[in-house]
Design a protein around this nucleic acid. Structure first.
Lengths: 210, 210
DNA sequence: TTGTAGAGTTAACAGCGTTAAGTTCAGGAG
DNA sequence: CTCCTGAACTTAACGCTGTTAACTCTACAA
């Protein structure tokens, strides 16, 4: 027999080719520039062949991002070993921003466009599991930092703090993604902004009252 | 004669009708949902008639946003009267966030999508003028706060601080715009996030050493 | 040998932004 | 009054998009 296995392998191969072609287009030109016809042309199949492997265009792009986001998850796995929760938060922030700047179109699709009908079930990522869910990872680190007295006594809500951290970094990344060449603002270097954002959130900007 | 004036008035009237129709569609359904054909149908003209008043679809949407952003500019004008620079920054942040939450699609178009060929000249807003340019407004307040010793001595760069503030708020707004119904995160109330973001940036979260 | 299931194709649909060409008509010039 | 011009507007079309229905082909199982 073995023919069934072969067909399955061929199927998987074509699926991979579709994703590869889509990735090249997507990384360099963004979501809108990727068309089913262009993908098809690159892999020398008809456009409709793609629909035998993916429900629609969005499914192609999400599968694409899922694979690439695994790389980020692997980095988070290493960072999880950092004992100090504050340092862990900082390292995670750095890795998150670096990933976003390296893959701006991926980041854009995942975090800057809404996918209204996306349910928790159909995702490859397990919600609440700090090994897969980046928000859960951050929340856990914040929780531990609170528990070990690394935040002010007034800071008690891990969700609030995690959301502020995420928002701060997301804001930097998002503005860089869409306005980095904007003539209105002369931006500070990205790495500096990321570090100073984390500094500011942790230690504040205002003068210490004496 | 006066017929020339009448025609000019009629022209302006149709221009207004186009913007009005576009605004209704845009505010409720977003950029993608606005089509030239739908606008045309609403005003009972042919789609091509719109091109006699606007260069293209983007020009319609930008004109739309320009008018609505004047409302924000008027609020900033009032806020400019606040003497204390820190309080001025906080008030501006509140107004900015409130505007964004009230007009998410406007915000999305203006700050969450890139317009690569947008030049400073063709904008209605004068760059660097704090009365019109919101970034210049924020930067000025930061500069004054630094000058009057309201920030730590290590804080010296008004651009850096203005960019951190803007990014922090933008991050909150942007995540709310695209992920407010997201099952992954249970969000804190918006107003609380905005206030606590400004708190955190100003006074920090970390425990005071000693 | 025949039936079937799956892979893949062709042709088409409905929609999009945009443009070229044509129509209609008011108003000024001779 | 006639002719012309220029503006306003429409019709029809182009080339593109994602997606689907209907068809062909082919390898394999009974």
């Amino acid at each position: 027999m073995g023919s069934k296995e072969r067909r399955e392998r061929e199927r998987e191969e074509l699926r991979g080719k579709i994703l590869e072609a889509a990735r090249e287009l997507f990384a360099t030109e963004g979501y809108e520039a990727v068309t089913m016809r262009k993908i098809a042309q690159r892999i020398e199949y008809s456009p409709t062949a793609i629909y035998l492997h993916f429900k629609d265009k969005l499914a192609v792009m999400r599968a694409l991002c899922d694979t690439d986001f695994l790389a980020l998850a692997r980095q988070f796995h290493k960072i999880a070993a950092i004992a100090d929760p504050i340092e862990r938060i900082r390292a995670a922030g750095r890795a998150y921003a670096a990933f976003a700047f390296a893959h701006p179109n991926h980041y854009r699709l995942m975090f800057m466009t809404s996918h209204p009908h996306e349910t928790v079930e159909e995702s490859a990522i397990e919600q609440g599991n700090p090994d897969q869910d980046a928000y859960a990872f951050l929340r856990l680190a914040v929780e531990q930092a609170i528990a070990s007295g690394r935040f002010r006594p007034s800071v008690t809500d891990p969700d609030l703090i995690a959301q502020l951290f995420w928002s701060g970094l997301h804001g930097l990344i998002a503005l860089q993604c869409t306005h980095c060449d904007d003539p209105w603002v002369t931006w500070k270097p990205r790495e500096e902004l990321v570090e100073r954002m984390m500094d500011a959130l942790l230690t504040g900007l205002a003068a210490v009252k004496g």
